[in-house]
């Protein structure tokens, strides 16, 4: 009951946000220099007079701006994101086709970064004054400062070109015709480099926040109580310190979801991973702005889904929230 109410509430909020993004997109097209129709058509489509005429008609571009806005919003509300002239496909179909790959990549990277980050962070917190603790933090800082796309490129050079351990491009071996478990294995092999390079930056963030948050929690009075009980240090670390330290980490993870979708654009571009990030790059190269805005809308929707999930997880982790909501 409580969760149903909560989810409804969050969904309503999500709809409002998405609606605002549609409006934002609309005004962006109109603020841009040049003919809105040409922008929507993309560079290639703009040379096709017939296509431009169709676009003008459909979006009512010769009518007052509020009518145009209405056309645009009602179009997207009925899941009509327009047509990509260059790719000769409806934008929605293009995006839906590419979405699973992105979900696989970001999902894997998300879990990987969170798990490893929390592990590294708690190790660093437990070894505060030791060399190993400082080493973890130095590494985290290094990963944090490294440009994502550059790590990806260097990983290709090292692991694909020189060592030839892992495939450098794509999501599966083209033309191999693999099925079943062999296919899963093949995809997994292709996934390792993109997911790891995408995860590194976020792992660094989670490591830092975990350590800070655990050190903060270890100063709390209830830790002294736990020690006064005669509990073992290990139990105190896990049950009292880590559990309390997790709360800010979950909050941060929710906030970082958006960054991760952004990071996927770079990773997918470098590894030719067939997701919406790569599609965004293609749209960018072809000046296909209607497709670009469609992807932008979907990436925001993806972030909202991530946010709702972290919100639910937070509520599971903190008994105090139930009372408040």
């Amino acid at each position: 009951m409580l969760y149903a109410r909560l989810i409804t509430m969050r969904l309503m909020k999500a709809i409002v946000v998405l609606f605002l993004i549609i409006i934002f997109n609309f005004f962006l097209i109109h603020m841009a220099p040049g003919d809105p129709a040409a922008i929507l058509a993309g560079e290639a489509g703009a040379t096709d007079k017939e296509f431009l005429r169709q676009l003008r008609e459909r979006f009512g571009l010769d009518q007052p701006i509020y009518v145009q806005l209405w056309h645009y919003v009602s179009g997207i509300a009925t899941l009509d994101f327009g047509y990509s002239y260059r790719q000769q496909m409806p934008v929605l179909d293009l995006i839906l086709q590419r979405l699973p790959a992105t979900l696989l990549l970001t999902g894997t990277a998300f879990v990987l970064s969170l798990a490893l980050g929390i592990l590294a962070g708690s190790l660093a917190a437990a070894r505060v004054k030791k060399v190993s603790g400082s080493l973890i933090m130095a590494l985290a800082l290094l990963f944090y400062a490294t440009p994502l796309f550059w790590v990806a490129l260097m990983a290709v050079v090292l692991f694909s070109v020189y060592l030839d351990w892992l495939p450098a491009y794509g999501m599966y071996t083209v033309g191999a015709g693999l099925e079943g478990f062999a296919l899963v294995l093949d995809v997994a092999k292709h996934l390792i480099l993109p997911a790891t390079t995408l995860a590194l930056f976020f792992m660094a963030i989670y490591t830092r926040i975990t350590r800070a948050s655990m050190l903060e929690a270890s100063q709390q009075d209830y830790v002294k109580t736990a020690r006064a009980k005669g509990l073992k240090d290990r139990v105190i670390q896990r049950r009292h310190i880590l559990r309390n330290a997790l709360l800010p980490i979950i909050t941060l993870a929710g906030l970082q979801a958006g960054q991760m979708v952004g990071g996927a654009i770079l990773t997918e571009t470098v590894f030719a991973w067939p997701g919406i990030g790569r599609l965004m790059y293609e749209a960018l190269m072809q000046r296909d702005y209607n497709l670009l805005l469609g992807i932008f809308f979907f990436s925001a929707a993806l972030v909202i889904v991530f946010n709702i999930v972290t919100d639910l997880v937070y509520r599971l982790a903190d008994p105090r929230i139930k009372e408040a909501s």
Binding site: Y222, A226, A317
Partner: peptide, 30 residues
């Protein structure tokens, strides 16, 4: 020795208990 032969209580009841654990579990922990 702690908890078994010497017990201790503190000043701030608001912060001396773990906010995420049930009271019974915190006692059982001893």
């Amino acid at each position: 020795l702690r908890g078994r032969r010497i017990g201790m209580i503190f000043q701030e009841p608001m912060t001396a208990l773990n906010p995420l654990m049930r009271a019974g579990d915190q006692i059982a922990e001893v």
